[in-house]
Write a protein that binds this DNA or RNA. Sequence first.
DNA 1: CGTCTTTGACCCGCGC
DNA 2: GCGCGGGTCAAAGACG
Length: 292
Amino acid sequence: MDSSLSLDLKVGSLRFPTEVPKVLRNSPKHEEEGLLMKREVGVLEAELNRVSEENRRLNEKIAIIYEDCANLQSQIKDLMTTVRSDRGSVSPERKRKSESSALNGYSDVANGMTNWMGRQIESNSSGNSCKRAREDCDLKVSRLCVRTDPSDSSLIVKDGYQWRKYGQKVTRDNPCPRAYFRCSFAPACPVKKKVQRSVEDRSILVATYEGEHNHGYPSQLPAPNGSSRGGSVSRHSSGPSNVTLDLTRVGSQQEVESPELPRSLVEQVALSLTKDPGFKAALATAVSGNIL
DNA sequence: CGTCTTTGACCCGCGC
DNA sequence: GCGCGGGTCAAAGACG
Ligand SMILES: [Zn+2]
């Protein structure tokens, strides 16, 4: 397994002949028109074949990416355990329960993509409107919209990290309370997040993250003995019923640069894919399709 | 017993 | 200084 995953996808090189409608015009020279039409048809067919082939290869690549993601995450997990054991022996900070963050409902890939997409959404909106430019120097603020069951009154966004709630306030412009969380996966992780229900759509939770994790992504592969017979699936299912991403917003605004350094290999992989908006959309569609 | 949630108190910046 | 609103602390309780 090579950790430097270079994909070399040439999706952006799709170029459709833009001057095709020329042959549709009314022309007195029918033979020439027919000839032109045939040639154009041939070109289009070749293009179609090429695109289909490209599509097939992309699907294969996506499958490979899935595997690589799983492999990378297992490597990260191993790395994290060794790092934790080292640090634990040196500085006896009060260690929290560093495991048993069961991911129920969706896969690690979905988690990573969710996180990454949220970052993309935020970097889009903040880059365009630049509402708060004073926090860019120190804190990185990102926003993630999550659709949950409106009947679920718990403001819990299960994004793969471990959060400890430390406050809740009612704000002025929103009748729904706002919950404050701190990352409790690492003892000194500075990341905080605020979760509040959206005013317009009560079924949407808006999570605002600030700061960067000083640890890797704490993803846990689903237990190898995943053949849990009984209803233990939803035993501690405080997770949201479904996490959806607003893909239209991602697709409508391309040109996303991500100047920040990736914190984990998973994010690095994701960032290497964001260069091309077309592939981003395709991958997002494929991933969301697989989630559902 | 350790960890997390709840919740009122407290702090702090800001506008007047 | 004072009130207001948002963010955080920390004691107490819940939970496994
Ligand atoms: Zn963290």
